[in-house]
Design a protein around this nucleic acid. Structure first.
Lengths: 229, 229
DNA sequence: TAACGTTTTTTCCAACTGGTCAAATTTCTG
DNA sequence: CAGAAATTTGACCAGTTGGAAAAAACGTTA
């Protein structure tokens, strides 16, 4: 499956955005270019994931990246471009766990591992999750196309896998789409609503252990539900 | 329980914000005042829930409300005030279902009804849900206090109720906090990630029926899980 | 070290932002 | 209807925003 593309306004070749150098052909990236771009993307992820696209300013990002605004604009000539890069990067890693769900595997280890992976992403990449959540809240203006095509196709495919498990009597017959939604929702909640989770758990239980508690709970919930057998 | 208060910068009496009229005592609200404030709050909910506090502009809100910016500022002299009003209003209705969980009731109807109510709120008040989600993504700067006090107290209380059900052997022993989180997550998902849900379900299944499907699915998930008995 | 490409800084700009103010207009009340 | 109060408008302002331009500083290599 090809990497997911976000609607780009103008792609302008892979040159990375340095606007000087109208030389014949695009030079290879400098060490400084690679490093600074990395620093900028890191800082931008911080700001965009908190404030959303409109709420974030280049000044904030530049300050977080420890450079001046024009200097930042030397590496990424548009605010939009930084955002798109982060979004595309994000979608790719974010959907990897779903792609890995295997049609030949057994449902219990497959679902368990999917849950675990998704939860680990919430723990290890919370800002990416919030960036995506922000985009969703805004109505997904930049990714709606790909949701309706790539994502839908992927989910359709995995829903079939799940239906296969049902046919084989390995799991209860239920709606595979809403099953996937509920896995997304429960796991991403620990990234997107992290403040709330920690506030409610309080000082004592709000440490990193919360992810293990969540993993244990979710596994039980999805496999057995709440009613005693 | 008293209605939840959001940290106000300066409350300036309940006078509603009309800045003229330095008469002796605050007059009662005009019909026009009530109506226009309603229109403004409605429009502001639209904009804030999409763009977040920083991303939203008074101009956008004014246009959505069909009035000029200075006219809007006549009713709500600060952008911040509109936002706080919406947030406080929201928290109140949003937590009502949780408050209603009854300690004497049986877990099955209680949880079922809680799920249903929360899902109905996502269906009927999606913008409020997104407003709240936006605030969370930003780190809850305006409601963190109340999350750590009021909300935590409420959840602590309901967690005890749930533990009582476990002690009575009526539901499986599990973590009540993560149970509540998972109910929040799964139900609010249908408001906050509505675009995604509809995109994935596609034209045919994306109609209003999705809420009934979700209700059915969630009820089964929470009660029985996925494994056949 | 001279020349050249790369990186950074300084200065600047037009559009937008939240908000003010006084004047004009509309609505209410006696 | 007259007067007062409430509402709306238009002009304005200072600060912020995304971004452009050019010059200065830096690094590399012949």
């Amino acid at each position: 499956m090809p990497p997911i593309k976000v609607k780009m306004l103008e792609t302008e070749g892979g040159k990375g955005g340095a606007k000087a150098a109208p030389s014949k052909r695009p030079r290879a990236q400098t060490r400084i270019q690679r490093e600074k771009q990395e620093v900028i993307l890191e800082a931008a992820l911080d700001v965009f994931s908190r404030e959303g696209f409109r709420g974030a300013t280049i000044d904030q990002i530049a300050e977080a990246a420890g450079m001046s605004k024009p200097n930042l604009l030397y590496y990424f000539p548009r605010k939009e471009e930084i955002y798109q890069r982060l979004l595309a990067e994000m979608l790719d890693i974010w959907l990897a766990p779903l792609r890995e769900i295997d049609s030949v595997g057994d449902p219990v280890p497959e679902l368990r591992s999917y849950l675990r992976r998704k939860l680990e992403m919430s723990r290890d990449y919370p800002r990416q999750s919030r960036l995506f959540a922000n985009e969703m809240l805004q109505g997904a203006p930049r990714v709606l196309d790909m949701l309706e095509t790539d994502l839908k196709a992927l989910v359709d495919d995995k829903a079939k896998v799940i239906e296969g498990w049902m046919d084989a009597g390995k799991i209860v017959r239920t709606d595979p789409y809403h099953l996937i939604f509920s896995i997304w929702a429960t796991t991403q909640h620990y990234a997107d609503f992290d403040v709330q989770v920690r506030a409610v758990l309080g000082k004592d239980r709000g440490g990193e252990g919360r992810f293990e508690d969540a993993a244990r709970f979710l596994e039980n919930l999805f496999l057995h539900g709440l009613l005693p057998k």
